[in-house]
């Protein structure tokens, strides 16, 4: 397995576990730690944790919402405003989570470089 795959899997795993007992920023902690332990290079520093957490949040929000016929997702997608489209809201959710994780990933890598 290459480092990217390992980083992706570990970020996903830690983000899932930390979210059970930490607030929403648990995904940032997960990406930071992973990036510190398994530093990546170039754009992958951002993209891999971004994809891992985006995937996690997309799956989780879809599971929660589809079980209730997307009743609330449609309303929140009107509120934000995303044209009342729940799929778009799920995507935005993924992007927000991914963004937080990607930036935490960059910081994790820089920590590693400084403290090495």
């Amino acid at each position: 397995m290459n480092k990217k795959t390992i980083n992706f899997a570990l970020t996903l795993f830690l983000a899932y576990i930390f979210a059970l007992f930490l607030p929403w920023w648990s995904v940032m902690v997960a990406a930071l730690i992973t990036s510190f332990l398994i530093p990546l290079r170039k754009a992958a520093v951002f993209i891999i944790p971004f994809l891992a957490v985006a995937l996690l949040w997309i799956i989780q929000s879809w599971l929660l919402s589809s079980a209730n016929d997307f009743i609330l997702a449609k309303k929140i997608a009107t509120l934000l405003p995303l044209g009342g489209n729940p799929t778009l809201l799920i995507l935005v959710t993924g992007i927000i989570g991914g963004l937080a994780a990607g930036i935490a990933g960059i910081f994790g890598k820089q920590c590693k470089l400084v403290f090495k």
Partner: peptide, 8 residues
């Protein structure tokens, strides 16, 4: 928007 704390 987080699935562990937010509106979901």
């Amino acid at each position: 928007l987080s699935p562990n704390q937010g509106v979901w």
